[in-house]
Design a protein around this nucleic acid. Structure first.
Length: 221
DNA sequence: GCGACAG
DNA sequence: ATCTTGTCGC
């Protein structure tokens, strides 16, 4: 996959936040097109302290058709250097190198991170979706910002995540009785479209299949 | 102002 | 990441 270069990655935290604010307006425009998506392939992208991994799955049978892994440069993502809200600046370069290795066509990407459910509306999933020019969704275990009511216990039930007047994501029950997942639009998808994609890709398990496949690639080896 | 804070 | 609890795989 090819990726657009819109800015430097080696920047101060203050500069990183300015970049996020300037890119967030492009995301906003991309969310206006709320065409329902019927992907034939979905990629999952996961990072760990050691590596970034991308797994490409076919939606017909959820078989993995390609996997790529890139080790992180040693000093970048140590806990000491990680800042909530700036995750993309810690892991973005390695993730994009993994995407550059991907040869298969990818219709949509799911990230184990937030999309627009972010203090400046540019979580890693939104940021990288924009640079890749591919619709994307963020799927996280816990909230970074915003408020929500607890969703019902049945699979498919969800409540909006709100920050002030804005709806920035969904608290979604992807599996009955299990802890909900926080889903938010990345690039070129609405909240409803993001919920639909999460439910399409997660059936037996709480976590969407592309992320379940990518996780051990990022951690293992 | 203080603490919490995606991975 | 790290900790704890609830998720997940047998």
């Amino acid at each position: 996959m090819r990726c657009q270069k819109l800015h430097d990655w080696e920047v101060t935290p203050e500069e990183a936040e300015r970049i996020q604010l300037s890119l967030a307006s492009r995301i906003q425009r991309s969310l206006e097109s709320r065409a329902p998506i019927r992907p034939s392939t979905v990629a999952g992208a996961v990072v760990s302290a050691e590596a970034a991994a991308v797994a490409v799955l076919r939606t017909s049978d959820f078989a993995m058709v390609e996997a790529q892994r890139v080790e992180l440069p040693r000093p970048v993502a140590t806990p000491m250097h990680y800042r909530p809200g700036l995750m993309a600046f810690a892991y973005g370069p390695a993730l994009l190198r993994a995407f550059e290795l991907v040869e298969s066509p990818v219709d949509v990407v799911m990230f184990r991170a937030h999309g627009i459910a972010h203090p400046r509306r540019l979580g890693l999933a939104a940021h990288l979706g924009l640079l890749l020019g591919v619709p994307s969704v963020g799927c996280a275990d816990k909230l970074l910002c915003g408020e929500h009511a607890p969703p019902g216990l049945e699979r498919g039930e969800w409540t909006p995540v709100r920050d002030g007047d804005e709806i920035i994501g969904a608290c979604l029950r992807t599996r009955g009785g299990a802890r909900p997942l926080f889903v938010s639009p990345g690039y070129a998808l609405s909240v409803e479209g993001s919920v639909d994609l999460a439910l399409l890709t997660a059936s037996r398990y709480r976590m969407p299949e592309p992320l379940r496949e990518a996780r051990p690639l990022a951690e293992g080896h």
